[in-house]
Every structure is written in structure tokens, then in C-alpha cells.
Design a protein around this nucleic acid. Structure first.
Lengths: 346, 346
DNA sequence: GGATCCTGTGGAATCGTTTCCATGGAATCG
DNA sequence: CGATTCCATGGAAACGATTCCACAGGATCC
């Protein structure tokens, strides 16, 4: 490539490298004259400092690592966007890693991030497997967990309180007359999978609905398992009249197979999904969701991480969730009339 | 943090730093004995080489930069995923930058990537503004353009041949009896915006349909402009009976407002969108799309970039596009009966 | 058996910065 | 006016790796 270094700048400006460096890093011990001449030389040469050398010497890289289970999942895409923007405005660039919901890829990326000496890491862990997460702790790399936590890892985190949203959803379905709610659960090897399942179990018991264990299908947060879940639940001798999916991708799978089975969502069966994805409102009927703010989650995660980097030990943050009722769950179980204009035939 | 360096490894293994380095980088000039002892020391200390120091000396960072206009756009999220996976399997990590459809953020990220001395950059440029793209050229940073090109920038690229897909779509709509097709165009400051508009214009002329300039609305690839476009087109004295949206986000905006206007997609108005997004098939009615393979695009972009890095000058690649007909455009203009089961009322 | 060739190794230079230390000159003080 | 302080500066060490160079010792050649 090329090779314009601080030495060239110093030479052109007629000062020493030390002085050039001081000017460039805003050290106050510089004369106006030196500042001007260095600035002119930088502009003339279009000098860009070598971040590697700078990081090597100063042991700060001004880079953050962000590790998500799957970028194609719109929830994590939004999270990545929110975190990246927050990091950028704090002067950090973001190294985005994608674990592909696999522990080995997560570990590989963690090693890469350690090697690159990022100043901190935000992780939405794939599962409960610690793996190379231990290495982060041992090296005291500032780390924050987001969306999911891991048992045995005592780190600051930003998570969602699933309880409130799920309770609202179950109560809402109960009010519509549903007594058998099918639950398409996330994997029990993730904290969100466990939390949401526990919340569902409690809410169903409180509302006095059927606690038939057959009404629960354990998926893996991928679209295909949503389809499989619907398939299994609909084959029961006494199938559910309402469905609750624990994340957006499984909801997508559920919708897909319900279409194929010829079941009308909102009329033949009610459907509520966890995660508020923008275009869920565009579906026909529009999908009821349990919403939580992914923008807040990303922003706060960066915020906590910056605090950890600064040597503080911030408290974990738990964000609220809340039910948004749309046409997919607006019809009482006895009725068949559309409840909203969006729900009518196209 | 901590401080386990190659010096510690060498000391523990009882060899010199040079030998330790040779073992670690797979240099054949090492004895089996040295290899074993270094390996043991590495395991014992859980040593991770400092990527900065390595990059500083060897002038290779094993990192690629990927700059997209908007990660939340599912097309670019998929592209990022595909490119990232391809890069990973070639031994590169990916630094993902998000320009937010803004030239200043694009320039800022380009400077960051130059500073970090990435080995190469894949850019889906925001618009025609060269900005800091010039700096990439001047420094001879290996660069590949993806999805969009920029006039005056002679770089290898991977793009889509919009012509074939758009021609198919227009012909398909003509076959259904439509004579006035509304076109929601991308911005003319992007190559895709221009290409697709030109293709549409040609296709309409060839099919003998209305070339009324009022049937074209110029949007900006964001959802809001899709809504605005529908709004404008539907106010015409003689509104279109079919719509073609030049990207997925504008299609989302169009669908949203069509719902609000009470127009039934597929019956009252036909709709076709550029970009095949997975969940477009889940809409009711399912959306007809002009599909092109984003996985191929990401993979090939990395491939071309690796060739450029290797000193070759690869040819640009143009990928095909093709129409996928679904229910949103399956009804002849005179009929009102559903053409597919998916299209019936829910 | 002496010259030549490998092979593995240690030591040192190097990459491009930051930062410490010493210095020289100007400014300030009594 | 001599001594102290301050400020801007140049020079050099350091960060943690890679890589060049020299060299020792064993194998190979004529």
C-alpha cells in the first residue's frame, strides 16, 4: 500500500516526531506555531494515524466487540444497529461478530476479540455454555451481557423482564375465552428460554387455564422449530385455541405453517409473539406482540460497558415488556366477526 | 488488564522469543522439541497473541471492512451475514460499519477502516458522492463495491442485473391486463436507482403500456417514501392499477398505507417488490418479488476482494434477477376471484 | 578429512506510535 | 541581576510481535 507515517508529517512540518504526536493527540504542551505547521502537513499528506501502532503503545484500541447469536434475526440486527450507533458517538468502533447460534463460533470470535485487545465486549450469549467467556473474566476484559445471561457469570447485564408482558398476554387471551394456550418455548439452555417459560407457567396457573404439559413445545428460536411446534400442537386430541411464540423467528415459522394448514389467524386461532418487529404490524391480520425496546437495550448496554471500562461496577438493568394487542388475537373465542378493519378479507 | 506476551511463553518454554514466534507462526524451521515445549507453555498460560503488534510488524491485519448503508434493512443484514461468514472461513474477521444512508457517516467509517489498516474493504456506497472513497484508491487499499457502483470509480464490483427481473415483472403485469403501472423508484443518486428506473422505462415502452411520467414517484429507499409514493400515485386523476416498488423497505411502506387506505392488495391493486425478503412470502396475500441472491452477492464480494488482495484484477460480476409471482399480483385486472388459496379471506 | 551445506537457534532490528526524560531559552521572582 | 519556574521541544525508550542475520553443530560431499 502506502506509507505516510507520523515521521513524514514531522519532517514536512519541520518538527520532531514527539512534537507531531503531541499536536495530534491534543497535548496542551504545544505551541500555536507547531500546531499550525503540523495541521498543514497532515492536510497536505492526508495522513491517517496507524491505529495498530497507537493501540500497541497506549493499550487502548477504541474498539468494542459485539457478539450476537444471529445477525439475520431482526431483533439482533436492530440491537447491533442501536449498540453500534451508541458506541460510535462515544468514539468507539464496533467489531461485530456473529455466532450463528453456535458455541464454537462464539468461542472463536471471543478469542479474536481478545487477540485484537478490544477495550470491551458486549455479548448476547448463545447458551449456558461458558466456553471462552471464562477467558474474558480471567483477563478482566470489561464485559457486559445483553438480552441473555449465563448462570455462574456474574457480570453486568441488560435484560428484559418477560414476566409482565407474558402475564398480560396470557390474561388477555384468557379474557377472550381461551382456556388452552399452546406455548412455543425457547430452548431451556438460554436464560430467556427459561424465564419466559417460567413466566408462562405461572401466568397460566394464575389465570386458571389448562396446565396440560402437552401444550408446551420446546423450540430453538429458529423459524423451523416454530413450524414444528405448530405441527405438534395441532395434532393433539384437544389442540390449543391460542398460541404464544417465545420469539419472532419461531412466530414466523408458526405463521408460515398456519397458512399452509389453511387456519385463519385471529379467527381460527389466536397468535401472540414475543419481540416487536416492525413489519409484524403489516401482516394480515396484524400480529399481537409482547414488545420491549431494543434501542434502549443496545444503548444501555454500551452505557454500562463504558462504565465498566471506566472502572466502575454498574448495576444490571432490567427493561420492561408490554403487550400490544392487534388483530391476531382480538377476536373472542366464540365470535368470528373481525374486530378491526385490518382483519377483513383482502 | 493482564500481560501475557510471547516473552512469557518463550521464558516458560525455555526458548528465545524468535523461536517461540517461529513455532507460533508455523515456520518449518523448528524442532519437534521446541514445538512441544512452546505448545505446552501456550496452553499453560492461555496465551493469545496481540493482533496489533502482529499487524504492525507484518503489515497484514487479517481484518476486512464491510460498509453498508443500513444494517436494519434486511437485504443488507443478509448481505452482512453472508460476507461475514465467507470472510470468516477465509480467516478474516469483519469490521462492520453502518453508514445510516449518510455520506458523512460513510466517510467517517472509511477513515476508521484506513486507520485500522484493514486488508481490504467491501463497500455498498450510500450514493454517488465519492468523499473518502478517493482515499481508498490513493492508498491502493484493496476495495470491492457491492450492490451499488459509483460513476468514476473503476473498481471490481458485484451487482444485480435489474433489467431481466424488471422486464419480467412488467410483462407479467401487462399479461394480467394492467396498462398503467405505478413505479416507486429509488433515488437517482444511486446506481441501482438509475438502473432500475431505466429498465422500467424500457420495459414499459416495449410492452406498449402507459409512459405517463406521473406514474413514477422518486423515493429514497426508506419505508416512509414508499408510503408517500402510494399516496401521490393514488391521487392521480387516473391512478395506476399495479405498483412496482424498487426495494423492500419502500414496499413495506407501500403495503402499510395501502392497508390504511382500505385497498386490497392483489385484488384492488397489484404489487411487486424488488428484493426477496424471507417474510414477504408470509404476507397475506404473499408478495410477488423480483429476487436476486444476496448470499451469492456476499460470498462473491469476499471472493473478489481476496483476489484483489492477492494482487489480481478480477472481473466484475453481475448476478441475475428473476420474477417470483405470488398472490399480490396474480389476479387479472378484470377478475376479482382469488387466484390462489393464500389469497382468500382470513 | 577438510570444505560445504543444511537446520535450528538466539539476538537484534524493525514496524509506527506514545510517553518519559533532559534540555535550552524565555519569563518570573525576590 | 542571578536564581527559579515554566514551556515547548528533541531524542530515545517502550509496546509485542515478526523477520533478518549470524552462528553453532551435525550431516554430506568430493
Amino acid at each position: 500500500m502506502e506509507a505516510v507515517t507520523i515521521k513524514d508529517v514531522a519532517a514536512l512540518a519541520g518538527v520532531s516526531v514527539g512534537t507531531a504526536s503531541r499536536v495530534l493527540s491534543g497535548n496542551p504542551a504545544t505551541s500555536a506555531d507547531a500546531r499550525d505547521r503540523v495541521a498543514a502537513a497532515v492536510a497536505e499528506l492526508d495522513y491517517q494515524p496507524n491505529a495498530q501502532a497507537r493501540a500497541l503503545r497506549s493499550t487502548r484500541s477504541n474498539a468494542l466487540g459485539l457478539l450476537v447469536p444471529d445477525v439475520r434475526n431482526p431483533f439482533f440486527a436492530d440491537l447491533a444497529h442501536a449498540a453500534e450507533q451508541a458506541a460510535l458517538s462515544a468514539g468507539y468502533v464496533t467489531l461485530l461478530g456473529n455466532a450463528n447460534e453456535r458455541n464454537d463460533q462464539q468461542d472463536r470470535y471471543l478469542d479474536t476479540l481478545i487477540s485484537r485487545r478490544v477495550d470491551g465486549v458486549i455479548v448476547a450469549p448463545v447458551g449456558d455454555d461458558l466456553g471462552r467467556l471464562r477467558a474474558l473474566i480471567e483477563r478482566e476484559v470489561p464485559t457486559v451481557l445483553v438480552d441473555r445471561t449465563v448462570p455462574g457469570l456474574d457480570l453486568p447485564s441488560v435484560t428484559t423482564d418477560s414476566e409482565s408482558g407474558i402475564r398480560q398476554a396470557v390474561q388477555h387471551l384468557a379474557d377472550l375465552g381461551h382456556t388452552r394456550i399452546g406455548y412455543i418455548s425457547g430452548p431451556q439452555a438460554t436464560s430467556t428460554g427459561r424465564d419466559r417459560f417460567a413466566a408462562f407457567t405461572r401466568a397460566v396457573a394464575e389465570a386458571g387455564l389448562s396446565q396440560d404439559p402437552e401444550l408446551v413445545y420446546f423450540g430453538d428460536y429458529q423459524a423451523a422449530s416454530g413450524s414444528a411446534g405448530v405441527h405438534a400442537l395441532m395434532q393433539l386430541a384437544s389442540p390449543p385455541t391460542a398460541l404464544l411464540a417465545a420469539d419472532s423467528l419461531m412466530a414466523v415459522g408458526a405463521i408460515s405453517i398456519l397458512h399452509r394448514l389453511g387456519m385463519r389467524i385471529g379467527t381460527d386461532i389466536a397468535l401472540v409473539a414475543f419481540d416487536d418487529i416492525e413489519w409484524f404490524a403489516l401482516l394480515n391480520p396484524a400480529l399481537s406482540v409482547i414488545a420491549h425496546s431494543v434501542e434502549d437495550m443496545g444503548r444501555i448496554a454500551v452505557d454500562l460497558l463504558l462504565q465498566v471500562i471506566a472502572g466502575e461496577t454498574p448495576e444490571s438493568v432490567v427493561l420492561p415488556s408490554e403487550l400490544i394487542v392487534r388483530a391476531s388475537s382480538a377476536t373472542p373465542i366464540t365470535g368470528t366477526a373481525p374486530a378491526t378493519p385490518e382483519q377483513r378479507s383482502q
